[in-house]
């Protein structure tokens, strides 16, 4: 298992520089800058796995239902459907449903794109990162029918499993989830 931890400090520094270089209302800016500094001081650590490390997220022996979404910040349809996964997480987390968002962003985008995205959208679902470039070796293990296009989503319980190589609306996602709950 490979786990890297990336720190948020560089980004907060960049944000601060950008904000300080703004020349609008000085008072307002300093408040915003202070707020942002406070916010970005909260460390955001990414958990990065190779496929072996991700495997425990892909099966269960418990009574929970797992929704695993494969996405990346550069993938427009993934970003569009992200709020629906977040909504499912909020609505069903007390009913034994766990949402995991598996980012496929490139390592060089972790600081510049992925971490800011997670913070900006205040994602409440668990975000993990899969970095395993030999995707031919693991795509069929996630599902034999997956061509490799994202977004893609896996829903499973200990008895059932379904895979979707498609974007969802909230209603579609909830309808699929309910098949596992009822």
């Amino acid at each position: 298992m490979v786990v890297y931890i990336y720190s948020m400090r560089i980004l907060s520094l960049i944000l601060l520089v950008i904000l300080l270089s703004c020349k609008n209302d000085a008072n307002e800016n300093s408040t915003v800058a202070a707020d942002l500094q406070k916010e970005s001081n909260i460390e955001l650590d990414l958990t990065v796995y190779d496929f072996e490390g991700l495997k425990p997220y892909l099966k269960t022996m418990t009574d929970s239902v797992y929704v695993v979404n494969f996405w990346a910040t550069w993938c427009a349809p993934c970003i569009k459907e992200m709020p629906y996964f977040e909504a499912i997480n909020k609505k069903y987390k007390n009913k034994g449903v766990k949402v995991t968002l598996v980012s496929l962003d490139f390592p060089r985008k972790y600081e510049s794109h992925l971490k800011p995205f997670i913070k900006k959208n205040k994602l409440t679902s668990e975000v993990v990162v899969l970095n395993d470039p030999d995707s031919n070796s693991w795509i069929p293990e996630i599902n034999p029918d997956w061509s490799g296009a994202i977004p893609a989503t896996l829903i499973f319980s200990k008895d059932n499993r379904a895979f979707y190589e498609q974007p969802f609306t909230f209603e579609e996602l909830e309808a699929e989830l309910l098949k596992f709950i009822n």
């Binding site: 550069w74 993938c75 995707s135 031919n136 490799g148 296009a149 994202i150 977004p151």
Partner: peptide
Amino acid sequence: YVENAVEALLSGKSIEQTETRAIGCSIK
């Protein structure tokens, strides 16, 4: 993969891996 496939075709051999998968951007 692609080089291996084309090399096999050029030398009249059978291609070892005829299908592979990779992550990509879904076609819009």
